[in-house]
Write a protein that binds this DNA or RNA. Structure first.
Length: 453
DNA sequence: TTTTGAGTTGTTCGA
DNA sequence: GTCGAACAACTCAAA
């Protein structure tokens, strides 16, 4: 039997890897060649945090597999058939990609491979249930989360396979050295990357975080979240693994964490059915709303200099670490859309450029939820008050002081309201760029203009 | 086909 | 300080 190709993308692990098992089975005693294609078109949009994460994850994969992962730069529709031909392979194995870019790319690659009688075999996906599988009884997709989640649980998923296939042999051809990380990655505080780190983090969360997760997940001043988002994004750990571990656990935390995974799957499903929702309004009437153009206020938002401590802390956490706590993602998004009156796409693009976990489906639909144009969107009157949110979810001001050093001299909760105290602006913190109460009313007025259309 | 109940994450105001 | 109601109207899911 000739060797087969395992084309890795967002599945950089060895454990519970259906495509790896399928490749080993197809090789039938011959070797499996692991390949990663650096697509310049994708890297262009990935941002520093994601690029650095990806390159480190590829290194980790190499060292865990103990083989030379072949890296080539170029358009996959040229590179993949070329490598397969070089090797004399009969099949190329992948985890299915359901995104609008990836699924189109795979169809092109599949056609080109077909010209040489090489098969593209899709096994597994980044999800417990592949997008498109959960449907209503009339065959149409769900557009509301709660019934989707119920049907998704009833649909169920297979149990994780344990470890890589036995008797697996790797092979190799000439590749390229991994490119250097972007220089700015040095300043970025990224955690450990790779499958092993993902498993360690998951165990840590099971032991320390799960029990208090239902409430703790809303507290950015505490280590209350799983921090698995980027590991999931790169497939270093699979949601099936997490769901299998959750199944044996009772309690509110396990239930709520399972629901968060369901949100990830729901948004992937929505994007699969409606690819235009990546950049277009899911509720079209919102395109007719009056919006402002990004200018100085947008710049202030990106830099974490809006004068609202909770908002600025979130934006600076993003710049410093490539990650932002979910509570802050909602707060800063609400601020961009409802206090600055900018279209959600500006914020979504900034997030994708800076988040290490930047995922098209979750990111875009999260933004649309805030903007009011998404599935299950926030009601129009739900405008976050950035100060109240801070007082509620960072009650001692610890999170704000951690990320906004100019407020470091303010004790306790007054860090959220430097205007309340005489020396609040002692260290050069900017004054508020807008008046929240009047901008809130402005948002409600603008909504009223498109109501009923 | 029609009907009915429900729908992630909030804020403000007035009693 | 606490609590409940109001904040619209619409779309969706399921019986």
């Amino acid at each position: 039997m000739p060797d087969t190709v395992l084309w890795l993308r967002r599945d950089l692990r060895l454990d519970d890897h259906p495509a790896l098992h399928a490749a080993a089975q197809a090789a039938d005693g011959a070797a499996v060649l692991p390949l990663f294609v650096l697509d310049p078109r994708l890297l262009q949009h990935a941002g520093v945090a994601r690029t650095a994460w990806l390159l480190r994850s590829l290194k980790e994969w190499r060292s865990a597999a103990g083989t030379d992962l072949v890296v080539r730069t170029g358009d996959p529709s040229q590179v993949v058939p070329q490598v397969a031909r070089e090797l004399g392979a009969r099949s190329v194995h992948v985890s299915a990609d359901f995104g609008p870019f990836g699924s189109g790319r795979d169809i092109r690659v599949e056609a080109l491979l077909g010209e040489d009688q090489i098969e593209l075999v899709r096994s597994g996906s980044p999800y417990a249930v592949a997008p498109g599988r959960v449907l209503k009884s009339d065959g149409s997709p769900y557009a509301v989360f709660t019934p989707f989640a119920r049907a998704w649980r009833e649909h169920g998923w297979r149990l994780p396979a344990s470890g890589p296939p036995s008797g697996l042999r790797w092979s190799s051809v000439d590749g390229e050295p991994l490119p250097a990380e972007p220089a700015a990655a040095v300043d970025l505080r990224l955690p450990e990357v790779g499958e092993r780190a993902a498993q360690v983090r998951w165990q840590h969360f099971l032991d320390q975080g799960l029990e208090g997760y239902a409430a703790g997940r809303d507290r950015p001043d505490l280590d209350g979240t799983s921090q698995l988002s980027a590991h999931l994004k790169y497939g270093e750990i699979h949601p099936r693994t997490l769901l299998a571990d959750l199944a044996s656990r009772r309690g509110e935390g396990a239930r709520v964490f399972g629901t968060e995974l369901a949100w990830r799957e729901f948004y992937a499903d929505v994007l699969w059915h409606t690819p235009s929702s990546a950049w277009g309004y899911l509720r079209p009437q919102y395109a007719a709303m009056r919006y402002d153009e990004p200018g100085e206020l947008f710049e202030a938002w990106t830099a974490g200099r809006t004068g609202f401590p909770f908002v600025d802390a979130g934006m600076r956490q993003l710049l410093a670490t490539g990650w932002m706590h979910n509570r802050l993602r909602m707060v800063v998004a609400s601020f961009l859309v409802k206090d600055l009156h900018l279209e959600w796409q500006h914020g979504a693009r900034w997030f994708l450029d800076h988040l290490r976990d930047g995922d098209l489906a979750s990111n875009q639909h999260g933004w649309q939820w805030t903007a009011g144009s998404g599935t299950d969107a926030a009601p129009y009157f739900r405008v976050f008050n950035p100060v109240t949110q801070g007082l509620k979810f960072d009650p001692d001001g610890d999170y704000v002081r951690r990320w906004v050093p100019e407020l470091g001299h303010l004790p306790g909760r007054v860090a959220h309201e430097p205007w309340q105290i005489l020396d609040g602006y002692l260290q050069g913190y900017p004054e508020r760029v807008v008046d929240h109460a009047s901008e809130r009313q402005e948002s409600l007025d603008r909504y009223a203009e498109i109501k009923g259309r």
